Simulated assay, not measured.
Amino acid sequence: MSDETDFDLFSGKKSKAKHDKADAAKVTAQTRDVTPATSQIIQSRPTDEEFYRNTNPYVGVAVVFNHKYVKGQKDRVGTEKDRDTIAETLSLYGFDVRVFNDLTFEKVDAQLKAIAKEDHSENDCFVLVVMSHGAEGRIFASDMSYPVERLWQPFLGDNCKSLINKPKIFFLQACRGERLDKPVVFSEFSVMTRQIGGPSQTEEIPPVITYAIPNTADMLVMYSTFEKYYSFRNVENGSWFIQSLCDVFIAAARKPEAYDKGSDLLRLLTAVNRKVAYEYQSLAKVDVLNQMKEMPNFLSTLTKTFYLRVKSHPGK
């Protein structure tokens, strides 16, 4: 049994499972939105706040866009496993999880804009997970590709006021190009490890102060793979990235501090990077795809540390 990519040139196999496929597609022209500069006079000031508030009643809304069938592309067999696992994982934290399958771009765009208009004032954060085919700078709906930034534009500060100064987190399982990530090896002596505890503090509600922050602040975008590279998906066990993300988040949710202080988001995501980078590689029938790796990575405009807590689901 072997792994496959969505390009006809390749076929191959992963060490732990069978039939991996890469979420890849052809690149089309990219568009840009231009936002005019504001004429409002503002005053910026410093802050000594180090942590995002995570004492709201609810953890937040989590949206999952799952695409198995994409026009002109191979079916993304195995994505159902990712869809169900990520939905269960986010529900474990108390997210209001909303799953959508095989939406057209028009419907994706409409859902994002509608959710951005909701009142998120009682939520700690917002999460969006998209699983589809992809290309450099673009991701696919069921009918067409679109620039990835269209996913977070509705949630920028000027578009979604109730999520200002709250983490907006985006997980993207898709290829970002045609390159394959080759392995490199290293050796080292075993070293003693120690557990580093997170900071503890009693949260205080400060007086009302007006701050000026960038429109693009407080966002984190995590990609399943490095720019210009393939992303692997197993037809039986799901993608390396989504399954690793769920494993790390579920383990954190089972710890006693998950209900109190919570888990440092960046530590969790670094653990996801480590898990995919160290534990997965492909075993292929063709040399060009044999022993290939994958490196998730994230871009962050978070301005504070965010501790993700397990909370009750809205309505419970």
Rank of each mutant, 00 (worst) to 15 (best):
M1H: 11
S2K: 13
D3Q: 15
D6I: 04
L9G: 08
F10P: 02
S11L: 12
K18V: 14
K21C: 15
D23R: 15
D23F: 15
T28N: 00
T31G: 00
R32A: 12
P36Q: 13
A37L: 10
T38P: 06
S39R: 14
I41Q: 13
R45D: 00
E49M: 10
N54Q: 04
T55C: 13
V61W: 06
N66K: 03
V70H: 02
Q73S: 14
Q73I: 08
D75V: 11
D75Q: 14
G78S: 01
T79W: 05
I86H: 02
T89Q: 10
L90P: 04
L90I: 03
G94W: 03
N101M: 06
D102T: 03
D102E: 06
L103F: 02
L103C: 03
E106G: 08
K107I: 01
A114Y: 05
A114T: 03
E118W: 07
D119I: 08
F126L: 03
V127Y: 00
V127D: 02
V130F: 09
H133L: 05
A135W: 00
G137Q: 04
I139S: 04
P147G: 02
E149P: 07
R150Y: 14
Q153E: 12
Q153A: 10
F155Q: 00
F155T: 00
L156R: 11
G157V: 06
N159P: 02
N159T: 06
S162E: 04
L163G: 01
K166R: 02
K168C: 09
L172V: 05
L172T: 01
Q173T: 04
C175Q: 05
L180A: 14
D181C: 09
V184Q: 15
V184L: 12
F186G: 09
S190C: 14
V191R: 14
V191D: 12
G197W: 11
P199M: 12
T202M: 11
E203T: 13
E203I: 14
P207T: 12
I209K: 12
T210R: 10
Y211T: 06
P214W: 01
T216G: 06
T216C: 11
V221P: 04
M222A: 09
S224Y: 00
S231V: 01
E236S: 10
E236H: 13
S239V: 03
S239H: 03
W240Q: 04
F241L: 02
Q243P: 02
L245M: 02
C246H: 07
V248C: 00
A251M: 09
A252D: 04
A253H: 07
A253C: 10
E257W: 10
A258T: 01
G262N: 07
G262Q: 06
L269A: 05
L269T: 01
L269E: 06
A271M: 07
V272M: 02
K275F: 01
V276L: 05
V276C: 05
L283H: 14
V288E: 15
N290E: 00
T301R: 05
Y307D: 07
L308N: 08
L308H: 08
L308K: 06
R309M: 00
K311M: 04
S312H: 13
H313S: 12
